[in-house]
Deep mutational scan, measured.
Amino acid sequence: MDVFMKGLSKAKEGVVAAAEKTKQGVAEAAGKTKEGVLYVGSKTKEGVVHGVATVAEKTKEQVTNVGGAVVTGVTAVAQKTVEGAGSIAAATGFVKKDQLGKNEEGAPQEGILEDMPVDPDNEAYEMPSEEGYQDYEPEA
């Protein structure tokens, strides 16, 4: 019985440690998101679009440190934060509304985080759909 109880105690310690790591990862992701939003706020009209992409990228980098179902929630929060940063930029006159959601080359930025393969159960990952990809044929 002692062996059984000791095993359960060790398992509990492992769960607590994993929860603490997840909590730490979420806190880091939130900190990076805040950094990115402050970065966007300090940019001029020309830099705002690039700044919004930076927020998304920093958040995406930190999301990889967070495991399990938390990833889905962090990704949703990050996307809403990026959308909010863009709205703030438009409201303050840093950028025109028609410039939001495009990178410096004018290509749409939507789907940055949505296409990231995420499995809350950590069982399997699927690649994003290939609808947006084109076949590449090298020139002879």
Score class of each variant (00 low, 15 high):
41 G>Y: 12
102 K>S: 01
25 G>K: 15
12 K>W: 14
21 K>T: 05
59 T>S: 04
132 G>I: 13
105 E>D: 09
112 I>A: 03
91 A>W: 09
33 T>E: 00
49 V>H: 12
130 E>N: 13
6 K>I: 11
70 V>L: 11
133 Y>F: 15
32 K>Y: 12
112 I>L: 07
57 E>H: 06
67 G>P: 02
33 T>K: 00
24 Q>L: 10
113 L>R: 08
66 V>G: 02
110 E>Q: 06
12 K>A: 10
12 K>E: 00
104 E>P: 07
104 E>R: 14
14 G>Q: 15
4 F>I: 08
41 G>H: 12
120 P>D: 05
130 E>M: 07
91 A>T: 06
34 K>R: 05
116 M>H: 15
32 K>M: 11
130 E>L: 08
42 S>H: 06
10 K>P: 00
66 V>T: 02
24 Q>S: 09
26 V>F: 14
137 E>Y: 09
89 A>T: 07
79 Q>A: 09
87 S>M: 12
1 M>N: 00
138 P>N: 04
63 V>M: 14
78 A>D: 01
138 P>H: 06
123 E>M: 06
30 A>I: 15
109 Q>M: 04
135 D>T: 09
19 A>Y: 15
110 E>R: 11
137 E>F: 10
57 E>D: 06
64 T>M: 06
115 D>F: 11
106 G>V: 05
73 G>C: 14
107 A>C: 06
99 Q>C: 09
139 E>P: 05
78 A>N: 01
132 G>K: 09
14 G>N: 06
93 G>S: 06
122 N>T: 06
9 S>K: 14
16 V>K: 08
45 K>S: 06
72 T>A: 14
135 D>S: 04
11 A>D: 00
98 D>H: 13
9 S>Y: 08
95 V>H: 13
30 A>H: 02
102 K>W: 12
60 K>Y: 05
123 E>Y: 10
33 T>W: 15
47 G>A: 15
44 T>K: 01
76 A>C: 11
98 D>I: 03
78 A>H: 05
13 E>H: 02
13 E>D: 04
63 V>L: 13
25 G>T: 15
139 E>S: 11
48 V>I: 12
29 A>P: 00
58 K>P: 01
29 A>S: 03
112 I>E: 05
129 S>C: 06
63 V>E: 01
19 A>G: 02
54 T>V: 14
120 P>L: 08
138 P>R: 05
88 I>Q: 03
112 I>N: 11
19 A>I: 05
16 V>E: 07
95 V>R: 11
133 Y>M: 07
13 E>L: 01
129 S>P: 13
58 K>H: 11
69 A>F: 11
29 A>E: 00
91 A>K: 04
47 G>N: 10
132 G>W: 14
66 V>Q: 01
108 P>L: 10
123 E>V: 15
77 V>H: 01
24 Q>C: 02
11 A>P: 00
66 V>R: 04
54 T>W: 11
104 E>V: 07
12 K>T: 12
26 V>P: 00
80 K>Q: 05
6 K>G: 01
63 V>G: 02
96 K>P: 05
19 A>Q: 01
108 P>D: 15
4 F>A: 00
34 K>S: 01
3 V>H: 04
118 V>W: 05
132 G>Q: 11
75 T>R: 06
101 G>Q: 07
122 N>Y: 09
51 G>S: 03
125 Y>P: 11
23 K>S: 04
37 V>E: 00
10 K>R: 12
5 M>H: 00
31 G>V: 04
124 A>R: 12
42 S>V: 07
106 G>E: 08
2 D>L: 12
8 L>Q: 00
59 T>I: 03
130 E>V: 15
124 A>F: 11
91 A>S: 05
49 V>M: 15
42 S>D: 03
42 S>Y: 13
22 T>K: 00
62 Q>G: 04
107 A>H: 06
87 S>R: 04
87 S>I: 10
106 G>A: 12
119 D>T: 09
113 L>K: 09
130 E>P: 10
130 E>Q: 10
68 G>W: 15
38 L>Y: 11
105 E>I: 01
123 E>S: 11
128 P>V: 03
24 Q>R: 13
92 T>S: 11
31 G>N: 11
17 A>G: 05
27 A>K: 08
16 V>D: 01
47 G>E: 03
105 E>S: 11
38 L>D: 01
19 A>N: 00
50 H>R: 14
58 K>N: 05
117 P>L: 04
86 G>R: 10
128 P>A: 09
91 A>N: 05
58 K>Q: 06
8 L>H: 00
133 Y>G: 09
9 S>F: 15
14 G>V: 14
15 V>G: 00
135 D>N: 13
68 G>V: 12
85 A>I: 14
55 V>R: 01
56 A>G: 03
34 K>Q: 02
48 V>Y: 12
44 T>F: 15
53 A>D: 03
57 E>I: 11
45 K>Y: 04
130 E>K: 08
43 K>F: 12
4 F>C: 02
125 Y>S: 06
20 E>Y: 14
66 V>W: 14
14 G>L: 11
71 V>W: 15
7 G>E: 04
5 M>F: 03
45 K>W: 15
41 G>M: 14
64 T>D: 04
137 E>L: 08
51 G>T: 12
111 G>Q: 13
95 V>S: 09
1 M>P: 00
79 Q>R: 09
82 V>K: 07
122 N>P: 04
63 V>T: 02
114 E>M: 03
57 E>G: 03
72 T>F: 14
60 K>N: 02
1 M>I: 00
34 K>D: 00
5 M>S: 02
136 Y>E: 03
126 E>L: 07
38 L>G: 02
110 E>Y: 10
98 D>S: 12
32 K>E: 00
120 P>M: 08
60 K>L: 09
42 S>M: 11
20 E>D: 06
4 F>D: 01
119 D>L: 08
100 L>K: 06
55 V>W: 14
127 M>D: 05
52 V>H: 01
66 V>F: 15
9 S>Q: 10
7 G>N: 12
101 G>H: 06
126 E>T: 06
62 Q>S: 13
86 G>V: 14
85 A>G: 09
87 S>Q: 15
25 G>C: 09
129 S>E: 10
120 P>G: 10
117 P>S: 04
7 G>Q: 13
65 N>S: 10
47 G>C: 08
121 D>I: 12
80 K>A: 14
32 K>G: 01
